[in-house]
């Protein structure tokens, strides 16, 4: 803090109050040095309580054969060994990654194009921008229920429409991997595309018009402007959305659970069981807490790895086109 005060006045002030200075200095030092930490502490206290403790405790549990309301025996890393050999876990991982790609790639591309369109001069621009954001305020459960009805085998709207085009055998969407993945991906996309589009739009508006004008003067088409100016300058934002989508995609739970009629098994043969569902099934249906805790930690590592890979890929965006 440097206030531009006349030196003499400040000095006199200090001299007059010299007597109380010693006693005050400890408190004021505490005020200056400790107060900021105190002010930010609520977040860290809450994080320690609800973030760090569960993380550490889960790690501790994962080293036991920990039955809910049952025996708890130390088994070391045995849960992890068993997990890595468990084909159901890998099936869940495969489903999670598959649904992630099927949902996220079109979602982010669509969001980018949508944001670009909304960034243009349009009639009813505000109304359009708001409507894009609308799905985010609907509850996941409502989305899941409505989409599950759309995709219902017997009375579903989508099978009815397909029937109009001559498809006689109704598709049982839950029955195969491909069909269930598509159904779940559309739920995810419906809800999150607008959210990402708004984030892109906000970032696009920070890009200076001058750059576009200069490019236009040089004869760059709007398409070229999009890919060579907008996208490279959006890179930090794209990295952010990719990482957030990765975390969301890898912890996907509510949509597939509702799609499966409330079961965490994800279809009769685990066609759409995600890792999050696998964890809940182990912990709260089979009561194997230790095993579920190990799976939760492996999921954490998987997300970390996937986020790093995605970060590396998106960081290279626009570089190749140089």
């Amino acid at each position: 803090m440097s206030l531009d005060l006349p030196a003499g006045r400040a000095g006199g002030h200090r001299r007059r109050r010299g007597a109380v200075r010693v006693r005050r200095s400890f408190l004021s030092r505490l005020d200056i040095h400790a107060a900021p930490y105190l002010f930010v502490s609520p977040y860290f206290v809450l994080f320690a309580l609800f973030g760090l403790f569960p993380l550490v405790f889960t790690a501790w549990v994962s080293l036991h054969d920990w039955q809910l309301a049952g025996d708890k025996d130390w088994v070391g890393l045995a849960n992890y060994g068993e997990l890595l050999a468990d084909e159901k876990f890998w099936n869940a991982t495969y489903n999670t990654v598959g649904i992630f790609f099927l949902a996220t790639v079109p979602q982010l591309l669509l969001a980018l194009l949508l944001a670009n369109a909304l960034n243009k001069r349009l009639r009813f621009r505000l109304a359009l921008r708001l409507s894009v954001l609308a799905p985010i305020v609907t509850s996941v459960v409502a989305v899941g229920v409505i989409f599950s009805q759309l995709y219902a085998r017997d009375y579903g709207l989508i099978n009815w429409v397909l029937g109009l085009f001559g498809m006689d055998d109704p598709i049982h969407w839950q029955n195969a991997k491909w069909s269930s993945w598509i159904a779940i991906s559309t739920m995810v996309d419906w809800r999150w595309t607008g959210y990402n589009a708004i984030i892109y739009l906000a970032a696009m508006q920070t890009i200076s018009r001058d750059i576009y004008e200069a490019a236009a003067l040089d004869g760059a088409s709007s398409r070229r402007q999009f890919w060579q100016i907008t996208v490279p300058l959006l890179k930090p934002t794209i990295i952010f959305t990719v990482i957030v989508s990765t975390i969301g995609g890898f912890t996907l739970y509510a949509e597939p659970v509702i799609f499966g009629g409330g079961s965490v098994s994800g279809g009769t043969t685990g066609q759409f069981q995600t890792v999050a569902m696998f964890i809940v099934k182990e912990a709260f249906r089979d009561f194997e807490y230790g095993y579920a805790a190990a799976a939760a930690w492996v999921l954490f590592l998987l997300i970390l790895i996937a986020a790093l890979i995605n970060y590396a890929i998106t960081r290279g965006l626009g570089r190749s086109s140089r």
Binding site: H172, N175, A176, S265, G267, T268, T269, Q271, R285, D286
Partner: peptide, 22 residues
């Protein structure tokens, strides 16, 4: 002791076979 878990698991198979996934 694990009646409910076994039951849930085998019922899935029966449903799967009935619906054609198995």
């Amino acid at each position: 002791e694990k009646h409910s878990q076994v039951r849930a698991a085998v019922e899935k198979v029966i449903n799967g076979a009935d619906q054609g996934a198995i």
